[in-house]
Write a protein that binds this DNA or RNA. Structure first.
Length: 468
RNA sequence: GACCCCUUCGUCUAGCGGUCCAGGACAACGGCCUCUCACGCCGUAAACACGGGUUCGAGUCCCGUAGGGGUCACCA
């Protein structure tokens, strides 16, 4: 049997970080078993669904490399089919019409709550004659569920979970306006799409029991379920804006790499021994539902940053330069000439070791494309006092005499210069760093010198010390 | 409130009855390296929620308690 999984977001906002992990698990499970991974947009609630949300979610998935194997199924296009199934159930006596008003239902719930029971529909129209239907009320169609015994799920993550059938009420299949509810359309679509494994957040675990009743009423084969624990905020509570970004797109804008985010999400709730940095290929071959933990996990931005930093250091400079340029182009204060961008490009490996995100990488590289005079940080300005500049002027002649403008040659020259003048390297290096970068912290001094080139380096020193 | 799920260092986790005075990673702290900041390397501190069982033996199995989470719509 070919495995078929699906990721089924409702298009009411952006791709949530938790949804991204669910999509990743579905994708990985399908790939691992040589199956298919499908997408379904759950937009039966037309009022809350937007086209913007659909494209935001699809963009997010594509960015993460989690696009579907086929074009997505839009649930609202299947309304007729949903209604057809409900009618069939009605004809077979497995469903019935209910004329309860919203007020009546609210009263039922309030009473149940007051008596300390779960708020369930009491089945009052289950066996009532339709001739008793009140005027002016459109009926809904409810499933006639099994009331005795229990429903058991052998969940691939949660294990055996059983619920008494009297805790499952006759839920609504078709609303009074004839549109399907979520509970009904998921089952019909999962069946029609031949989904074999439903992998989703465990906030759906309770729904699974209801859905199973529907599968059985239709005598359809039941899918396997795998309910993955939710991702919580750093305080253990439900993840929300309060804890930082919840939208995948926000992480993208903060400069996280898609492969780093996937790696982080994969390890959040899933493990393969002590492995931490896992490539997509390894993930595909290692992934199994058995590796998913049963307890909820907390989102840890620091850890995400650490993983992102590792991918950044290992990242392809060509690809990174494209992302860095994108950031730099938003800076009108910079010199974006080809010459300056080439310096930026060459500086990437050196700055990547000092950055955790693409944003930090771009910020750390900006000095290579800065216009003169440089804006000096406080500590840089202090290093360029009379003494500092005095030493730099002396150094200028030494640098002008260097004809092999390479990192090792520059290092030899500057070290010799410092020694000749009875100075520690630091006494020369810190003012030089300040003049060259505008900061007290930067990549290796000789690397910076080499990348800047003799002319630009000279210009920066003269500019910093007002001699030019 | 009812029902369901969960509970190993601050965090993510390894552990699938003895090899665990509990291992790894991130974060923290200390050190080395060093032209700064990083990277890297070395090291320190840090956990089996609690109480009962079962067993020769429990982090690992069972039952309670406590805590956390989820679900109880003609929303998904």
């Amino acid at each position: 049997m070919t495995v078929v999984t699906r990721f089924a977001p409702s298009p009411t906002g952006f791709l949530h970080i938790g949804g991204a992990r669910t999509a990743l698990f579905n994708w990985l499970f399908a790939r691992n078993s040589g199956g298919r991974y499908l997408l379904r947009i759950e937009d039966t609630d037309r009022a809350r669904s937007t086209a913007e949300a659909v494209s935001a979610i699809m963009d997010g998935l594509d960015w993460l490399g989690l696009g579907g194997d086929e074009p997505p199924v839009f649930q609202h296009t299947r309304l007729a089919r949903h209604a057809e199934v409900a009618q069939e159930l009605l004809a077979r006596g497995r469903a019935y019409r209910c004329w309860c008003t919203p007020e009546e239902l609210a009263g039922m719930r309030a009473e149940a709550r007051a008596q300390g029971r779960t708020a369930l529909y009491d089945g009052r129209w289950r066996d009532r004659d339709p001739s008793e239907a009140p005027d002016g009320v459109d009926p809904v169609i409810r499933l006639r569920t099994t009331t005795d015994g229990e429903t058991v799920i052998n969940d691939r993550v949660q294990g055996r979970v059983a619920v008494r059938n009297d805790a499952i009420d006759d839920f609504v299949l078709l609303r009074a306006d004839g549109t399907p509810t979520y509970m009904h359309s998921v089952v019909v679509d999962d069946h029609d799409m031949a989904i074999t494994h439903v992998v989703r957040g465990d906030d759906h675990l309770n729904n699974a029991f209801r859905q199973l009743q529907l599968f059985r009423a239709m005598e359809w084969p039941e899918p396997e379920f795998a309910h993955v624990p939710l991702i919580h905020g750093s305080d253990g509570g439900r993840m929300s804006k309060r804890h930082g970004a919840t939208a995948v797109n926000d992480y993208r804008e903060q400069g996280f790499l898609p492969e780093a985010l996937c790696n982080y999400l994969l390890r959040l709730g899933w493990s393969h021994g002590d492995d931490e940095i896992i490539s997509r290929e390894q993930a595909v071959s290692w992934f199994s539902l058995a590796g998913i933990g049963r307890s909820p996990s907390r989102f840890d931005q620091k850890r995400l940053e650490a993983i992102n930093a590792r991918y950044l250091r290992a990242g392809d400079a060509g690809r990174l330069s494209g992302m860095v340029f994108e950031h730099l182009r938003r800076r009108p204060d910079l010199d974006l000439s080809e010459k300056a961008l080439e310096r930026v490009r060459r500086g990437i490996p050196g700055v990547a070791a000092r950055a955790r995100t693409v944003t930090e990488l771009a910020d750390g590289l900006a000095f290579y494309a800065a216009r003169l005079p440089l804006t000096m940080s406080g500590r840089a300005a202090r290093a360029l006092d009379a003494d500092g500049c005095g030493r730099l002027r002396g150094l200028l002649a030494t640098l002008e005499a260097v004809d092999d403008w390479s990192e090792p040659a520059l290092e030899t020259a500057v070290r010799a210069h410092a020694a000749d003048h009875g100075l520690g390297l630091g006494a020369v290096a810190q003012p030089l760093r300040a003049a060259l970068t505008g900061s007290h912290a930067s990549p290796g001094l000789f690397e910076v010198l080499a990348i800047l080139g003799p002319e630009e380096a000279g210009d920066r020193i003269r500019s910093a010390c007002g001699t030019g």
